[in-house]
């Protein structure tokens, strides 16, 4: 085990974990931030998406040892009270069915909208195609991202 300094949602933490432990499990099992979800463990489904220095990243594939010095934002830190425009748009369009993948979808969308303020429909579909949803809420996800882009 080794000691790592982490900055998560603006707070500093010191964690004693194995160097190869993916940041996903550090967040969930060490820090108790369970909003970030496990889906596949191989960066294919997007359920574990977080922001590293503001950029979307798959937390299941990044070992804790590679992340020091970077600012981590999780779904819990996107806003204090669910007021981020993407979260609000998700509520407005009543996007979730089971809801499990939605934290990852929201983290992908919020990072994407930072880089692309007025995306086309195709831009949105491309950007959101890395996140799987078995319930099939893709249409509402598109609408919510569009709405959020106008309200951001």
């Amino acid at each position: 085990m080794a000691s790592y300094e982490l900055n998560v949602n603006g707070k500093n933490y010191t964690v004693d974990v194995d160097a190869d432990m993916p940041i996903l499990w550090v967040l969930r099992d060490t820090l108790g931030l369970v909003g970030t979800k496990y889906g596949c463990g191989i960066s294919q489904c997007g359920a574990c998406t977080i922001h590293l220095d503001g950029t979307a990243a798959r937390s299941c594939g990044i070992p804790v040892s590679k992340i020091e010095g970077k600012k981590i934002t999780t779904i819990e830190g996107l806003s204090k009270d669910g007021s981020h425009p993407v979260q609000q748009a998700w509520i407005e369009h009543d996007v979730p069915q089971c809801g499990y993948c939605q934290a990852g979808q929201i983290m992908t969308a919020s990072a994407f909208l930072k880089d692309n303020k007025s995306p086309s429909d195709e831009d949105i579909q491309q950007a959101m195609s890395g996140n799987l949803c078995r319930c099939g809420t893709y249409l509402r996800i598109r609408k919510a991202v569009k709405t959020a882009s106008k309200n951001s």
């Binding site: 909003g35 509520i91 009543d94 979730p96 809801g99 939605q102």
Partner: peptide, 14 residues
């Protein structure tokens, strides 16, 4: 959805 607000904030539900 009555859980919508909790879902989008990543609250422990699952």
């Amino acid at each position: 959805n009555v859980d919508g607000k909790n879902i989008v904030q990543g609250k422990p539900l699952f």
